[in-house]
């Protein structure tokens, strides 16, 4: 896998697969967002990734970095809430790190996403354990360049938010009552990483 170079077409496939998966899982994301949020995570992410898919169909950016930067900008412009700036920053920062290379290795993608995750942590002021998307993102980039391992780590991280007490975002208002629920943001982050091995097939 680490020998394979990833081109812009791969990144478009990744974003398209993520959009399809978010679309399929939208109701579940909204359901997860009901007890500890405000019941809109699914519909917001669905709207944003549908807009990303539409943009990539027409604009067809030529480099991996350009795909991620355009997708991130589109999420910021269409999602709203906290998820828009946070997911938008994740992809934009990763896109910037990839620069204008026409092909990148999985290891380079991993490093770029790690920089994106750092930017998310800085923007949101959150840390792992706060019951946020970082609880899926940090293990995912920590798992290395293999897509299957990253996807598994993200899914595991999302599940591991269940016993946590939220310290950031709207769920934090609940205090101890946020315990026992899976974080919707960590869940959508896991979907994003689950789309990576799908795009590599």
């Amino acid at each position: 896998m680490s020998e394979t170079a990833l081109d812009a077409a791969f990144f478009i496939r990744w974003m398209t697969a993520a959009a399809a998966s978010i679309d399929r899982e939208a109701d579940r994301l909204t359901e997860l967002d009901s007890p500890i949020g405000d019941a809109d995570h699914g519909s917001n992410m669905q709207r944003g990734f549908a807009a990303v898919r539409k943009l990539l169909e027409t604009a067809a950016p030529q480099t991996p970095g350009a795909v991620l930067t355009a997708a991130g900008r589109q999420l910021i412009s269409t999602v709203g809430g906290a998820s828009g700036p946070l997911y938008g920053t994740l992809l934009r920062r990763a896109g910037k790190v990839l620069g204008d290379a026409e092909r990148v290795t999985p290891a380079e993608l991993n490093a770029a996403l790690a920089a994106g995750v750092d930017a998310v942590a800085q923007l949101g002021g959150a840390a792992p354990g706060d019951k946020t998307m970082l609880d899926a993102l940090v293990p995912a980039v920590g798992a290395g360049a293999a897509f299957d391992a990253a996807a598994a780590a993200a899914a595991e991280g999302a599940l591991a938010t269940v016993p946590l007490q939220a310290r950031k975002g709207r769920a934090s208002y609940l205090g101890e009552r946020s315990i026992g629920h899976q974080d919707p943001g960590a869940t959508s982050s896991a979907l994003l990483f689950a789309a990576l091995p799908e795009a590599a097939k």
Binding site: D38, A39, D40, S43, N44, R47, I76, S77, T78, V79, G80, G81, A82, G84, P85
Partner: peptide, 11 residues
Amino acid sequence: PGEVFTSPVPD
């Protein structure tokens, strides 16, 4: 105005 209960976007 944003979507229902969702912050508007920077644009």
